[in-house]
Design a protein around this nucleic acid. Structure first.
Lengths: 220, 220
DNA sequence: CAATGTGAAGACCTTCACAGCC
DNA sequence: GGCTGTGAAGGTCTTCACATTG
């Protein structure tokens, strides 16, 4: 497979490091807005809440963009991270589920600001189909595969009740989606190895917090 | 500090294991609804998407609840996990930010189902104060500390724009909140060691997915 | 002198394999 | 025979410390 793109080093980046690279990118963009041209590992690492050594090690997985004695060019590093993360251009997203969570995700401005555009919204409830949600007409789930033949989105969001999640995942994969963000509190499985799924269980986040509250011995 | 509670072993549980314990609990509750009385490590592990060895190692951090040759009592194990995670009783939650995300979180039934009750909603916008959101009257942020003297919530959710997040965090801590779930795309820092913060950056989840899409060489 | 990039060391987590129990 | 619990082995990630560079 002829790899698209430029001189990026195809070294594998460890999972935890990928998540932190996305964090660094966020703060680099903030620095750029502030007009900062150069930043040191210790400064940016402090903002991101990691050690300077961690930061430099993470960046060592990419081509060298820092200059010893000087630091990192803010614009340079931002572009490198965008390239590594595949964020050079906007991405289309299919959103499935027009309930309260789906509606919130649809109106959340943060996605579009960072290049993820909700291209279509789907639901299985005929009462919701045809309604408008943040400028989007809600479509029926049966039309997902057909409509994505022209949209060609590679990202999908599952925001449906747990019973429906697996079916939605399969439709998304069949429609050509390769990255799935699943908000349903149940695991969905896909057989294809070129499809990646991430689970976000909001209640589970609370439950983890609760452990640390309990473990610290401080009860209310 | 005299530790409250019962015969739970005070061994420290590794971070990744805590998250998985919460996952196991989710599937145990589902099994219980299905009327299953006993389950083996391999069965439950398969549902949760981990190896059987991983599952047993995670449980080895707690008191032994499995019986060799038989498996785990579903009800037993659920109760043990609830106790370890501190989920034996409901928890009150303060929600700050009545924008689209805040509204969605307020109406999301999953929180209450799993014992996290939104006790009050706050916003800084006087136009929103007094409005109702899923049965809750929106309060002004200035009243947060005072109102929590009677509510005594220990959990807080930050669903405000990034500029306001740090201020909200400080108010929550001052009000006695010990666990903070932060949806603002910026790190908030708290000085107290007995307060734990978790960050959920929804866009960042997409960015991580994008890396794996790009890394697999499959471009659309 | 200031700051990066990196091998080596160390900490942490996962997987293996098997003794022991039902 | 089936299954748990766990020490030991293996792998991954983080931290350290320093050679190197501008």
């Amino acid at each position: 497979m002829p790899s698209a793109g430029s001189a990026k080093p195809a070294k594998r980046v460890p999972g935890p490091a990928v998540a932190r690279l996305a964090t660094y990118l966020k703060y680099l963009r903030a620095l750029e807005r502030e007009g900062v041209a150069t930043v040191s590992s210790s400064t940016l690492a402090a903002r991101a809440g990691v050690s300077a050594a961690q930061f430099r090690k993470d960046l060592s997985h990419l081509a060298g963009v820092g200059r010893p004695g000087v630091g990192y060019g803010v614009d340079d590093l931002r572009r490198t991270l965008e390239e590594v993360l595949g964020l050079g251009r906007p991405h289309q997203v299919l959103l499935v589920g027009a309930g309260s969570l789906g509606a919130a995700l649809c109106t959340y401005p943060g996605f579009a600001e960072r290049g993820f555009l909700i291209a279509a919204v789907f639901d299985s409830n005929r009462l919701k189909v045809g309604q408008r949600l943040a400028g989007q007409e809600v479509r029926h789930i049966e039309d997902l595969i057909r409509l994505n033949r022209s949209i060609r989105a590679r990202f999908g969001v599952i925001a449906v009740p747990p019973e429906a999640a697996q079916d939605v995942a399969e439709r998304l994969v069949a429609a050509g989606v390769r990255c799935i963000l699943n908000f349903a509190p149940v695991r969905v499985s896909v057989d294809r190895t070129d499809v990646v799924v991430r689970h976000v269980d909001l209640t589970q986040e609370f439950e983890v917090l609760s452990y640390y509250l309990t473990a610290s011995g401080a009860e209310g």
